[in-house]
Write a protein that binds this DNA or RNA. Structure first.
Length: 645
DNA sequence: CCCATCATGGTTTTT
DNA sequence: CCATGATGGG
């Protein structure tokens, strides 16, 4: 595209934001109003103005979003965008921390702990405290507490005192001890958990003004997508980054703030102008995505939330049929109904990948999944356990992680416990006798360990160790995994999993994926931070065939489909009972979540409203239609009741 | 001390 | 219904 021609692709609202002069800019972009396009063209505009791409930082909510934006910017601006920094807060913090980790007392090869790693670490700590297990919080509860403290920037002592006020003082003391040990152990492991990446990213700037000044100077323009979902640390971090040039361009929609439970605080967007008084504000309200009928429902839904920026979605599209609410008997009937709708749509020529089923929680889709499989309808799920958190992939990653970080006790335990005759106790003792580190790439260290192992473990141990020997001989890590699989893991997989072929294929897939990275550290960080959305995209890219999509509403953020079906729109499910119980403002966030689901739909929106729920104990529970449906004026929805079949 | 079996308890959302 | 945790035999 030449000259300013790209501006023709923008409407008045978007163009004003794209061309705005330097300074802090807040773009309030309602759903479907071309937020991504605005952000992309702002980047293009900056580059055309002569800003070097490596002076621009683009923070997005997922890496997928970053990649898409960069691809689009490249299409519009040519190869000129290369060098631009784009990705999630976690990624960018990691990228910066890898360079400066020693300033904070970490080696540059620090390991990133994913959720599972953190949980297993905490479990061991709780165990070592020898507490009365019935009255002591579970590891995941402790971790969520630590995370809450980190993300809100508040002191953890107060959180403990508040959340566990019913527990004895002695128990609270032990909780504080568990938290303390968790931090200490992470240090010993030379590892950071997800929150540490953000916390340390901020700490790096606070404690090292010369580093802060370097990045403040380097990034002349900072752009942030989905600003409504930033938390305390993230907001502080970007404020600091942009403090020198003051070119902070944030885009968001307070109506779509759905990560409050993770510390996101939409006051960041509401109060942006207070923090940056010279802010220019732009509103995008013209919706290009959905039919007027769908938007009417969206507007009616969000009207239930006061105290937010008032925005009304204006449609540009022609009318279609109104959204449909179908009352069905139960989950089974709902699954049959959804499948019949999918069949109808396919018959009308809708492509399967233009249809999505979006739900509040994974388990809402169980019945549907079974039925889809039984009926042979292909689908993809962007939910459930993350690709790289599956046991076999973590096993393989442990080989690599230990190679980079000799202090990684978690990987050590994982591998060594696979040896016959080695259980928890033995591995603990081994680790202690090794002095809390194991240099897998040194033959002397490997020999030392071999001498400490029980006799019957030695043969398998040598097989595992052959992977590291290969690296010592100068083989690549990818090749080393071949050795690991052929000498040890193939047999292990065949004897421990009921689907070894699939798992070995996953490993090959991982090796192919590794080939794209020029350093092992880069690969390992990427894998730790990769979401399902990104992993799944990787695998469908090869398989090709377009599929019906099943996803949580959270993971559907920023995406759109021609047809959206939402099951279980009943009280207790959507809104989720648990969310209402835990958070006094839970209903507002649930309503925003419902709004996000609605506004993903272009042409058709269909709700499933079962009348009863089969409980696990064999009983049944009657369901009330969701308050969010009741709030929508009659006439905006078409309601049907399906016969009991 | 390891490992398999049995019971129990608990189901939100994710970087 | 599934995963995790306790328990007891080897």
């Amino acid at each position: 595209m030449k000259g300013q021609e790209f501006l023709r692709e923008l409407n008045e609202e978007q163009r004003a934001a794209v061309l705005a002069p330097d300074g802090p800019i807040l773009v309030l972009a309602a759903a479907g109003t071309g937020k991504t396009r605005t952000l992309v063209y702002r980047v293009v505009h900056l580059i055309r103005r002569g800003i070097a791409p490596d002076q621009i930082l683009l923070l997005t909510f997922t890496n997928k979003a970053a990649r898409e934006m960069l691809e689009r910017a490249e299409a519009a601006a040519g190869a000129a965008v290369s060098g631009l920094w784009g990705g999630t807060f976690h990624h960018m913090a990691n990228r910066i921390l890898r360079r400066h980790a020693p300033l904070l007392g970490y080696p540059p090869e620090y390991t990133i702990l994913d959720r599972e790693d953190a949980e297993s670490l905490m479990k061991r700590i709780v165990k070592s405290l020898e507490v009365d297990s019935l009255l002591f919080p579970k590891a995941d509860v402790l971790l969520s507490l630590i995370s809450e403290a980190a993300n809100s920037g508040g002191p953890i002592e107060e959180l403990i005192a508040g959340r566990f006020r019913d527990l004895s003082e002695a128990t609270q003391m032990q909780i504080r001890e568990a938290v303390f040990r968790y931090e200490k152990e992470k240090r010993a492991l030379k590892a950071m958990d997800f929150d540490d990446l953000l916390v340390n990213g901020l700490r790096l700037f606070r404690e090292h003004p010369e580093v802060e000044a370097y990045y403040q100077n380097r990034f002349r323009h900072v752009l942030v997508d989905e600003y409504q979902d930033t938390n305390f640390i993230q907001a502080e971090w970007v404020n600091r980054l942009a403090a020198a040039h003051r070119n902070l361009f944030v885009v968001g929609d307070d109506f779509q703030s759905i990560y409050g439970w993770r510390g996101a605080d939409y006051r960041n967007i509401l109060e942006f102008q207070k923090v940056h008084p010279e802010t220019q504000v732009f509103k995008l309200e013209t919706n290009y995505r959905s039919t007027p009928e769908i938007l009417a429902v969206a507007n009616a839904c969000i009207a239930g939330n006061p105290r937010q920026f008032q925005k009304v979605l204006r449609s540009t599209r022609a009318s279609r049929r109104p959204p449909l609410a179908a009352r069905v008997r139960d989950g089974e009937a709902q699954a049959r109904f959804i499948i019949s709708q999918v069949r109808r749509l396919l018959g009308e020529g809708v492509r399967p990948d233009e249809i999505a089923v979006l739900y509040r929680a994974h388990f809402h889709a169980l019945e549907l999944q079974m039925r889809l499989m039984r009926e042979g309808i292909p689908f993809v799920i962007t939910s459930g356990p993350r690709f790289f958190e599956q046991a076999h992939l973590k096993d393989v990653l442990a080989v690599l992680r230990l190679m980079r970080n000799p202090g990684d006790a978690i990987s050590f335990r994982r591998l060594i416990r696979q040896l016959p005759g080695v259980g928890q106790r033995t591995v603990d003792r081994l680790w202690e006798r090794l002095g809390g580190m194991f240099s897998a790439l040194q033959s002397s260290a490997r020999r030392t360990l071999e001498g400490l192992l029980p006799r019957k473990a030695v043969e398998d141990w040598r097989r595992i160790a052959s992977a590291w020997e290969a690296v010592e001989r100068g083989e690549t890590p990818i090749k080393a995994l071949d050795v690991f699989v052929e000498r040890f893991y193939r047999v292990y997989a065949e004897t421990h999993f009921d689907d070894p072929e699939r798992r070995l294929e996953d490993i090959q897939e991982t090796q192919r994926y590794m080939a794209k990275y020029d350093s092992l550290d880069a690969f390992l960080s990427e894998v730790a931070l990769m979401t399902n959305l990104e992993a799944e995209e990787e695998s469908t890219r090869r398989q090709g065939a377009p599929c019906l999509r099943l996803s949580t509403v959270h993971q559907a953020k920023g995406l759109e489909w021609r047809v959206v079906l939402v099951p279980w729109v009943v009280e207790g499910m959507f809104p989720s009972a648990r969310s209402l119980a835990e958070n006094p403002l839970g209903h507002e966030e649930e309503r925003r979540l419902f709004y996000v689901a609605i506004t993903r739909a272009r042409d058709e929106l269909i709700f499933g409203v079962p009348e009863l729920r089969q409980m696990r104990d064999g009983g049944i529970m009657f369901c009330k239609p969701s308050r969010f449906l009741e709030e929508i004026p009659k006439g905006l929805l078409q309601e049907v009741r399906l016969p009991y079949v």
